[in-house]
């Protein structure tokens, strides 16, 4: 069920970041980069309301504060750089994954019976994306979603994500380091500089 709401950050303050204003339209991807320790992950955590922070975040006309926290996080879903699993088999974590999505990520439906303890870090990363998306969020916060993947798989995951984002109309914040990847997936690139976000040189298409 596509929802098509924009994600809006108003004077968001967390850690070093003093006052972040940002609006992401439905179906658009904004890339976020910055040196390690600059607060990229913490910014995403504030947007998902996992850490106390200042300012306000809106999904369409719904304010973060107006929803119970778990409902907000179910809509504005954060996929962390390192995923964690609590049950034994993969299937127990995936509510109802689409077979097409499973195959697009390079698995067969047998993956649902796999043991989590035997997954490689690359498999975990792809399955974590699948796990998040199978819960039908309304916006995505991706923290280095292809960090553990080889080039071919990275491209495959990017293509799949771009199609899904366009179909579902999710606003997306995508933390990335690789300039080539940023070029491929996003039209807007922000870099954390000290206390604020700075617009980076935009792609040739502008």
């Amino acid at each position: 069920m596509p929802t098509h709401h924009s994600l809006r950050l108003e004077r968001l303050a967390i850690g070093e970041l003093a006052s972040v204003d940002l609006e992401i339209a439905p179906g658009k991807i904004v890339c976020l980069s910055g040196t390690s320790g600059s607060g990229k992950s913490r910014l995403l955590r504030a947007v998902a309301d996992l850490e106390p922070h200042g300012g306000e975040t809106w999904l369409g006309d719904v304010a973060q504060e107006s929803l119970p926290a778990h409902e907000w996080r179910a809509r504005v879903m954060l996929v962390p750089a390192e995923s964690h699993w609590w049950a034994d088999s993969v299937g127990e974590h995936l509510a109802d994954a689409d077979a097409a999505d499973i195959e697009a990520l390079g698995f067969t439906t047998e993956v649902l019976d796999w043991q989590v303890s035997r997954l490689s870090s690359g498999e975990k990363q792809r399955l974590a994306l699948l796990r998040a998306i199978s819960r039908e969020p309304a916006a995505l916060l991706l923290d280095e979603p292809t960090a553990n993947l080889d080039d071919t798989t990275t491209r495959r995951v990017e293509d799949w994500l771009l199609t899904r984002v366009r179909d579902r109309g999710w606003p997306v914040v995508w933390v990335a380091h690789d300039p080539a990847q940023i070029e491929r997936v996003a039209r807007r690139h922000l870099r954390i500089q000290g206390h604020r976000l700075e617009e980076e040189g935009q792609g040739a298409w502008v």
Binding site: R73, A74, M77, V79, S83, H84, R135
Partner: peptide, 9 residues
């Protein structure tokens, strides 16, 4: 693990 579960709603 707890935080990852929170992130999933």
């Amino acid at each position: 693990v707890i935080e990852n579960r929170l992130m999933l709603g």
